[in-house]
């Protein structure tokens, strides 16, 4: 049995995710085979690209059904970048598109003024993650990573409609946005932990611990 199935819908850098999992000793497979996915302990939804196209492919491959099934069984679901955005209710990228709706919130475009006056909506580079310090927030992935820099590449960001699911926030120029979320068995990162050097790998190490904890709990 694989620890993690990396959902392959041909969008994004799946190989790098697998390399990071290998590095920390998590057994994974990149696959679109429903049976193999079903038999995995948890899933990662990766993704880079446009929201409507991603949702279309998720449905074509019947990934949506299996993701809901995982959620009912309280198995771990991890979304990265676009993969995290897909977990939310809807997105306004290109056209209004319904997401998986496991988390309440929507996805909107940055529209910030650069210092030299030109508009920019594209956040590429390293930004600090500021951990949510509220006491009732449980944060199983980002321990000791407060104010560490992670690699972001996106022009859309999430707005959460649920309280206490945002585990960290970051700044794009002066705009504060939610950079990671966690709710029960679901978690998501706007940045790419697998591209964020040794600090990013710590998130994968925490994931390994969480996998073990979940196994014993189920």
């Amino acid at each position: 049995m694989n620890d993690i199935a990396i959902l392959d819908y041909k969008m994004g850098n799946l190989f790098s995710v697998q390399c990071a999992l290998n590095f920390v000793g998590i057994k994974s497979i990149i696959t679109d085979d429903i049976e193999i996915i079903k038999n995995s302990k948890s899933i990662i939804i990766p993704g880079v690209g446009a929201y409507p196209e991603a949702m279309k492919r998720i449905k074509e491959k019947k990934f949506d059904k299996i993701i809901y099934e995982f959620n009912e069984k309280k198995k771990l679901i991890i979304g990265i970048c676009l993969g995290m955005q897909l977990l939310f209710s809807e997105s306004y990228e290109i056209k209004k598109t319904k997401g998986l709706g496991l988390l309440k919130g929507d996805v909107k475009k940055f529209d910030e003024k650069k210092q030299n006056g030109s508009n920019t909506s594209f956040n590429v580079g390293w930004n600090e993650i500021l951990l949510n310090s509220k006491k009732n927030i449980k944060n199983n992935y980002l321990n000791s990573l407060n104010k560490k820099k992670m690699y972001f590449i996106h022009s859309y960001h999430i707005n959460t409609f649920e309280k206490s699911i945002d585990t960290s926030s970051s700044f794009f120029y002066k705009k504060k946005f939610v950079s990671s979320v966690e709710k029960n068995n679901i978690c998501g990162f706007q940045f790419h932990p697998e591209k964020s050097g040794p600090d990013g790998l710590k998130i994968y190490k925490n994931l390994k611990k969480n996998l073990l904890n979940y196994e014993s709990a189920i």
């Binding site: 190989f15 590095f23 790419h192 591209k195 964020s196 040794p198 990013g200």
Partner: peptide, 29 residues
């Protein structure tokens, strides 16, 4: 990609979409 966890930008002589796909698939961002 196996032991360097950083964003990677790659190019040189890319002519078509298939080559883009092959490079991204091998781990470039």
């Amino acid at each position: 990609s196996e032991n360097i966890f950083l964003p990677m930008l790659a190019g040189g002589g890319i002519k078509d979409i298939n080559e883009v796909e092959a490079i991204l698939k091998s781990g470039a961002d």
